[in-house]
Amino acid sequence: MLLIDCPWCGPRDDAEFHYGGEAHILRPRDAAALSDEEFAEYLFMQQNPKGPHLERWSHAHGCRRWFNMLRNTATNEILEIYPMGEKPRSEAGKAAYEANWRRGSAAEANALSGESS
């Protein structure tokens, strides 16, 4: 049972929320340029850590808005909640973000290529 502090509605039972899986996955811009292995990694190899996990949630039976959350999957402790489109600010969140294998993967490099600097 999770008590999730929706940034707009306050603390609510997790039954009101929809889990959106791993956060910060960037879709490749030119998927055809990736090899089968690289695309399979992008598509199927989700983060599955026993520890801090960056994930997306939507308050489906409330304000229906999305947000990001850092939760320890070994204890269900919620460590940080932050807006979509932003990166985590806590030390644990930054560490989880950096430890994610997608940083530096071909799929992420592909997704970032051509972005205005």
Partner: peptide, 13 residues
Amino acid sequence: DSYNAYTQRGSLN
């Protein structure tokens, strides 16, 4: 349960 966890317990709903 929909979310990842290693807790060997889930949500009551």
